[in-house]
Amino acid sequence: MDLRVQLAPKNRLGLTLGNPVMVASGTFGYGMEYAGVIDVQRLGAIVCKGTTLKPRPGNAEPRVAETASGMLNAIGLENPGVDALIRDIAPVWAEWRVPVIVNIAGESIDEYREVASRLDGVDGISGIEVNISCPNIEKGSVEFGTSPDLAAEVTEAVRNASSLPLMVKLTPNVTDIGVVAKAVVRAGADALTVCNTLRGMAVDIVRRRPVLGNICGGLSGPAIKPVALYLVYAVSKAVDVPIVGCGGISSATDAIEFIMAGASAVQVGTATFLDPRACLNILVGIEDFMARENILTLSEIVGQARA
């Protein structure tokens, strides 16, 4: 049975995963945190917490709020900055078998470019995932990912700054995701992650205030699965690069749904909090399904539900 996935077929370095089950940015730290609970080396890949040029302290507490079958988060990209990541964390990854992809974020095109260029050629880093759901501070704080032009500009800047395989993570908070997908693929994305969190909020009726310190946050978990699943389907009709499905995936059935809708691989996020073994259980469940259904290579079923 062949579970391997190539996420960057046109990139010189390529990005080959041993299996399609990745863990999503911001839900798995830097990989070490869960290493005492599960065998992280069995994962298809690890995507680390969003990394910016300078260290960031993150948002005011509370940063998370549970909602029906989901949660809101507004962490505010707390991270030690790209230089500390390269100095202290990447050397650990360099010893690992599992590929690690660095998720990057920025407040300007220059910041994305600079972070990407510093990551280029660093041992232990197999790829870059660009989070474009960040406000563009120079241009009225509109999110890069909501404008096809800005999204393409970020992608192109990162593409030119680094030769690493390049994934772009799309935001679901748009009217037509296909247009954004096409723009970033034209600008050089090797693969697309679909999708990031949906914007939402919760109110504490006793205090009569928003629950989150940041007022609004990103909704994740099983509550968003049908939305993310449809977006994967829509993106896979619009472009011809590998897609990584993400959003509410908690079981092997969920993962296979995403694969049949057009994803070549999946990311598990919020489900890890409830069950740190979820990602590995999903992997085993996919293997069982393939054995049961006589599927020899995973690529046979990618997009099969698309008709």
Binding site: G26, T27, F28, G29, E33, Y34, G36, V37, K49, G58, E61, P62, R63, V64, A65, M71, N73, I75, E78, T272, F273
Partner: peptide, 12 residues
């Protein structure tokens, strides 16, 4: 304080 993961991964 409110927590997500309990092991230092989510920074909540």
């Amino acid at each position: 304080v409110r927590m997500g993961c309990g092991i230092g991964a989510c920074l909540s």
